[in-house]
Design a protein around this nucleic acid. Structure first.
Lengths: 250, 250
DNA sequence: ATTTATGTTCTCGTCTCCGAAACGCCGGTA
DNA sequence: TACCGGCGTTTCGGAGACGAGAACATAAAT
């Protein structure tokens, strides 16, 4: 396995990342100093990216282009799980009034590929495409529960178990106990392990031959963690999951 | 304005495009022959893209990675129009039961940045991130109506007026007449100009200082183009547009 | 065992990418 | 008006990476 890479490609991608780091918009000089790369180099990369729509020029400033969204659309739709699950996630948000999410696993991390806001949903920053660690979110742990143990171990080895809040699971043994519980009960909970004050109930999706995935409903502890509501959400999740799994095999 | 480009970056992007052209998935050799590029070159680019998450490896095959979706998310959210409009587009779909869309203009073309399906929505292929010509869709023409005439002319010069169906507007004078009508009436119609059998009603959005945008509702001619329904949709579009514009200035 | 496909590695000559510095342009300033 | 400091853009040369082709490894099919 050669470690040789195409340097220019990496530079271009660093430029894209730099634009994000600079709040999505930057001039040539600003980006060059941020990346510690020669101005002329950054300039040529930006022009190249611009000609392909990966970057857009507004006056003297550059932003990420919507062409990336086009590729993202393909990546997301690839195996049909998204198309199948999306309407159910939307309905989940409507039924519960909270924030509903669909997550895929890729490269050992979780990616929010769809989110839907219900009537009372918190305005938390779960933008589409956001990546998250699997061990510190409800959906993430639900996904882990669908993976074989060796895979989980590899993921933990590569990405570690970084702490997000005081409640985050950071011990491997504890994580595996939790995952066993999720496997037997079919539900995963995130008790302020990702964001303080937020509670998340998730359900793994059985997607044989396709990408690992899970769905969840998120809301403030005060609302979601109370007995009645929690059970209502669990039932809604179970129903949605069943519908999705049924439609996937059909 | 130098025409010099970074060749390696272009090659990497060609690799991504090639993956899409090969139905989203390919092996090294397959992609290399498709692109007429040496196998080893394609290999190194794929490995580089993979290390950055732009491509994912499943066994011996490569696909577009969800990292692209992350950048797409930033591009889409940039100026707040998306966040403001999205809930209204969702409601639009629910109210009308049809397919509702939000489009941005970028580089003279239209990009579907959000779509929502109502109860009876046709299952047409409007995936998020898809690019379309502005002159042949209802939303596109609505966007054109918000642009100054010189800009429209530049766009027509660059992208032409390619025909999509027998009803597509292909004459510049006719296009400008239509745009004048849209400007005075505040509504744009797509009478099977993009897809045969499909009718689309759109409304331009006033987004001063932000990206040009428009919203629309699409459905089969038989349902959407009839008097009563058409008026209902027009009213819903008008309301949604007003709410969005209000929230944008607030 | 042989064949044939694949992904991966190797090697090398050419071309290109990178960096530094110069240029042109614009807005603010005395 | 002349100056200055900032920007994006262009120029230019040398180091070095990229791209092509062929060799190698591996796996599946025959």
């Amino acid at each position: 396995m050669s470690e040789e890479r195409v340097r220019a490609t990496e530079t271009s991608i660093r430029a894209l990342e730099g634009l994000v780091e600079l709040d999505g918009e930057a001039g040539v000089t600003e980006l060059a100093t941020h990346l510690s790369i020669a101005k002329s180099t950054v300039y040529k990369h930006l022009r190249t990216l611009e000609s392909k729509g990966f970057v857009v020029q507004y006056g003297d400033r550059y932003r990420i282009g919507l062409r990336t969204l086009e590729f993202g659309g393909y990546a997301r739709r690839y195996d049909g799980v998204y198309d199948t699950a999306r309407p159910e996630v939307d309905r989940l948000a409507e039924e519960t009034g909270e924030l509903a999410n669909l997550m895929f696993e890729e490269g050992g991390r979780g990616v929010y590929v769809h989110t839907a806001s219900g009537e009372d949903a918190v305005d938390i920053d779960t933008q589409t495409g956001r990546h998250a660690h699997l061990h510190s979110t409800g959906v993430g742990k639900a996904i882990l529960a669908t993976l074989p143990d060796e895979r989980i171990e590899t993921i933990v080895d590569v990405h570690g178990l970084p702490r997000a809040t005081p409640h985050t699971i950071t011990a491997e043994t504890e994580l595996f106990e939790e995952i066993d519980a999720i496997r037997s009960e079919g539900v995963a909970y995130d008790r302020e392990e990702c964001v303080e004050g937020m509670f998340c109930i998730a359900r793994p999706l059985s997607t044989p031959g396709r990408r690992p995935a899970a769905i969840s409903v998120t809301g403030p502890v005060s609302r979601v963690a109370t007995g009645g509501t929690e059970e209502r959400i669990r039932t809604a999740l179970e129903r949605a999951g069943n519908v999705i799994e049924l439609n996937l095999t059909a």
